[in-house]
Write a protein that binds this DNA or RNA. Structure first.
Lengths: 126, 126
DNA sequence: GGCCCATGTCGACGCCCGTCGAAACAGGTG
DNA sequence: CACCTGTTTCGACGGGCGTCGACATGGGCC
């Protein structure tokens, strides 16, 4: 079971969803220390070019999931790919599932909406 | 002039806007190496709790701008705050302007929409 | 002009992170 | 069972990053 480590997030819904909504837009009010730490983990996970490409490859793959063997062409060694995928898993952005020989990754459903919500521009379109 | 360094981004519109749209959603197609590097810079800038709090403080501040003295209470020394604000500037997320004694920071207008666009969920809400 | 306050810069230190090769583990196939 | 392929883990190395204190700079104020 590849999904080993989980993280302390505000409302870890009991459905395997590690990233929960509940974060206000960054423009709404200053983030508290705890919130910032949790949110920063997500952004940090996407703050590496290799991880970003892996995430994008999974997110844009047909069927919403991708085998490691299909997305390993990002210019680094295969162990490094695995390492980054693990980071993305630990950050709650991806989930993995082994089916026979191959391991398939998919985007944690709530991630895009949660992070997108954080970046909501202020209502008053100044 | 605090805004010293700029970055190589795809379409640096000639308006002082360092972050330009032109990045497809991460779910649309796998990011190329160059794109990933540029986009990762933005996410990386928000991947630190202190920077995230500073960014949020500026973004949520009345009038869209904040004096350093108003947002320096993030638990680190003042030089560190300045260091992180510089990082956010170099990443194109903030701009700064000196008015008299104080320096005011504001969010680069296109940032929120650009990054939000990157996180657009797939049209097929599967 | 001289002082003080607000910011930014410099140099140093320690830790975290990305990277790799080698080895371990998992599962299918003969 | 032996072997092969796909994937993860381990240990190590090097560079980058966050943090600080001390100092430089810039601009009001008396």
């Amino acid at each position: 079971m590849p999904n080993s480590e989980v993280l302390p997030l505000p409302a870890p819904a009991a459905g395997g969803s590690a990233v929960a909504p509940g974060f206000p837009p960054l423009t709404e009010r200053p983030l508290g220390a705890g919130e910032a730490e949790a949110v920063a983990r997500m952004f940090k996970a996407l703050g590496d070019p290799v991880r970003l490409r892996l995430f994008s490859a999974v997110a844009s793959h047909e069927g919403g999931e991708a085998c490691v063997c299909d997305i390993s062409d990002v210019g680094v060694s295969q162990p490094t790919v695995s390492h980054h995928l693990k980071k993305l898993r630990e950050a709650g952005l991806l989930t993995s599932e082994r089916r026979g020989t191959w391991v398939y990754y998919r985007v944690e459903p709530s991630v895009l909406s949660t992070m997108g919500h954080l970046l909501t521009p202020p209502a008053t379109a100044a």
